[in-house]
Structure formats: C-alpha cells, structure tokens
Amino acid sequence: TKVFYNGTYVEFNNPEKAKKYAEKVAKKVGGTFTEKNGQFHVE
C-alpha cells in the first residue's frame, strides 16, 4: 500500500499502517488524504 505525498511515496505492507501514516501526514501539513485504488494520497 503506497502513501503518496508531495511527488514521492512511502510503501507499507500493511494497509492499516498506511492509513495511519496518511492521517498523520495530512494532519501535520493541514491537508486531507484520500484513498484511490487502494492507495492513499495526501493533499
């Protein structure tokens, strides 16, 4: 499961961990995250 952010991504074996990371990054940058095709995108 990949989490895309700012033109790069971090890959996780565990979708649950990926979601938590996406939430954390989104919170940090004051943005939101969306799930597309089983991957997370932070905006």
Rank of each mutant, 00 (worst) to 15 (best):
Y9K: 04
E23F: 08
V10C: 14
E35L: 09
V42R: 01
A22S: 03
T1V: 13
Y5Q: 03
Y9M: 09
Y21N: 02
A22Q: 01
P15N: 08
A22E: 00
N37F: 09
V29R: 06
H41R: 06
N13C: 15
A26Q: 02
T8G: 11
P15Y: 15
Q39P: 01
G7M: 05
F12C: 11
G31R: 04
T8P: 01
K24F: 15
Y21K: 00
H41V: 11
V42Q: 01
N6C: 15
K19C: 11
F33S: 06
V29W: 09
K27E: 10
T1W: 15
K19I: 07
Q39A: 14
K20L: 13
T34E: 07
K24W: 15
V42M: 03
A26K: 01
A26L: 03
V3N: 00
Y5W: 11
V29A: 06
E35P: 04
F40M: 05
G7D: 07
N14C: 13
N6T: 04
A22C: 04
F12Q: 00
E43N: 11
T32R: 10
F4T: 03
Y9E: 06
N37Q: 08
K17N: 12
T34N: 07
N37C: 14
T8H: 12
P15E: 08
E35F: 13
F4P: 00
N13T: 13
V3E: 00
E23T: 08
A18H: 00
F33M: 11
K28F: 12
G7R: 06
T34Y: 15
E43K: 10
A26H: 02
K28S: 13
N37K: 07
T34V: 13
E16G: 09
A22P: 01
N14D: 14
K17M: 14
K17H: 13
N14Y: 05
G30C: 15
K19E: 06
G31T: 07
F40R: 00
N37H: 08
G7W: 06
K20V: 10
G30H: 09
K19D: 02
E11L: 12
V29F: 11
N6S: 07
K36M: 10
F33Y: 12
T8W: 14
K19N: 03
G38E: 04
K2N: 03
N13W: 10
K17Y: 11
G7K: 06
V42I: 14
T8I: 11
Y21W: 12
Y9A: 08
E23W: 08
K20I: 12
N14P: 01
K28G: 08
T32S: 10
G31Y: 04
F33V: 15
V29L: 12
N13S: 14
V42N: 01
K24G: 09
K2G: 08
N6Q: 10
E16N: 09
K2P: 04
Q39W: 08
V3M: 03
V42D: 01
F33H: 03
T32P: 02
Y5D: 01
E11I: 14
F12R: 02
F40C: 02
P15S: 10
F12Y: 04
V29E: 05
Y21P: 01
Y21D: 01
G31M: 06
F40G: 00
K17I: 13
G7T: 04
N6K: 12
K17C: 15
A18N: 00
K36G: 04
E43D: 09
A26N: 02
E35D: 05
Y9W: 12
T1K: 05
G38W: 03
E35S: 07
A26E: 01
K36D: 06
E16H: 11
N6F: 09
V10N: 04
G38T: 03
G30E: 05
P15C: 14
F33E: 00
Y21E: 03
G7V: 02
G38F: 05
E16S: 10
F33R: 03
K19G: 04
K19T: 03
E11V: 14
V10K: 12
V10L: 10
V29G: 04
A18F: 02
T32G: 05
V25Y: 08
N14W: 05
K20H: 10
E23S: 08
E23Q: 12
Q39G: 09
E23D: 07
G30A: 06
K19A: 08
N13V: 11
G31F: 05
H41G: 02
V25I: 14
N6D: 08
N13K: 13
A18I: 00
K19R: 15
K17T: 14
G30W: 05
E23P: 00
E35G: 04
G30M: 07
Q39E: 13
V3D: 00
H41C: 14
Y5G: 01
Y9T: 08
V42P: 00
V42F: 04
T32E: 05
V25S: 04
F12P: 00
E11W: 14
A26I: 04
E43T: 13
A26G: 03
Q39H: 15
K36H: 09
T1F: 15
N13A: 14
V3I: 03
K2V: 08
K27H: 10
F40Y: 13
K19H: 07
K36T: 08
K20S: 11
Y9I: 11
K2T: 05
E43G: 09
K20C: 14
E35M: 11
G7S: 06
T1Q: 05
N6W: 07
K2F: 10
E11D: 06
H41A: 05
G38R: 04
V3A: 02
K28V: 10
F33G: 01
K20A: 14
K2D: 00
K19Y: 10
K19Q: 08
K20F: 08
A26V: 05
T32D: 05
N13M: 12
A26S: 07
P15K: 15
E16C: 14
T32A: 07
K19L: 10
E16K: 11
T8E: 08
H41K: 05
N37M: 08
N6Y: 10
K20T: 09
F12H: 02
T1M: 07
K28M: 15
N14V: 06
H41T: 08
Y5H: 08
G30R: 08
V42Y: 03
F12V: 02
V10S: 06
V10I: 12
N37W: 07
T1R: 05
T32M: 09
